[in-house]
Design a protein around this nucleic acid. Structure first.
Lengths: 133, 133
DNA sequence: TTAACAAATGATCATTTGTTCATATGTATA
DNA sequence: TATACATATGAACAAATGATCATTTGTTAA
């Protein structure tokens, strides 16, 4: 039976599941990124997962802006904006520069803009597909 | 005073903040995406903000895989994997196809792979910069 | 139809997250 | 130095999230 070559009954896995395609699992396992990279990626993207932060990023993708201007633009408390900017900065998504009392924020590098635009493209194509189907 | 042209003292904003660069705020406000798009983007990216889901996506970026193989690869309970796959599918990040009892999952489109790779690039350059500074 | 199994789902619970309030820093200027 | 202002930060709390357990749904083959 050639099926036996592919199917391995392993009741003793921690997850309690059987492996159906042992070969593929091993192949994929071989070049899975390290846990550190997976976590790094997750916390990088997590930052994009909030509407307020996305709004901030879209704004900064147009212009460098200071905290209180962002407050006005988003109609949000200064504290809330500052907290979010801190999150964004810690993840190196945004950089800041001081000019007297004013702190100016801008996107850290071009990757940020790229990520945003791919997201927008993905969403637009989704809604387009709906029309086609 | 030319400063007065730029500075507008608006104590009556909901956010209680003053606008320092009124012109920039208005400029940026003009082509801010709609709230719907901002929320769409956020929930799209939110999906990338978890190590387990990133692991699943990295795996699927190599090979189409079924649920129990993912369980084995990630050493996770079938239920946990299924729940995450549901999340991924609802956000149209992943698609599924049934073959008998087995459900095969794969990335929804090329955007997903692009997003992942930009993330990886961003992280790599970060660590490179550290060495240079 | 029944047994076996792959996958999905609902409820639960500990943990994380985002906002708010109150307050603290840091900077410029009177 | 004292005051005003731009921003940052800590504590608190409601809301969202992810894993787990138990159970259900859907599919195949005996």
């Amino acid at each position: 039976m050639k099926e036996n070559r592919l199917v391995k009954e392993t009741e003793d896995l921690a997850c309690g599941a059987r492996v159906i395609h042992e070969d593929i699992v091993e192949l994929v396992a071989r070049d899975m990124p390290e846990k550190t990279l997976l976590e790094g990626l997750a916390s990088f993207f997590k930052v994009f997962g909030d509407p307020t932060r996305i709004a901030i990023l879209m704004a900064l993708s147009k212009e460098e802006m200071c905290v209180c201007d962002l407050c006005a633009l988003l109609d949000m408390k200064q504290s809330a904006v500052s907290h979010q900017l801190k999150t964004l900065k810690q993840s190196r998504v945004v950089r800041s520069r001081r000019a007297g009392k004013v702190m100016y924020y801008s996107l850290d590098d071009d990757h940020i803009d790229s990520v945003l635009h791919i997201g927008i493209q993905h969403i637009r194509e989704e809604t387009t597909e709906h029309r086609l189907l």
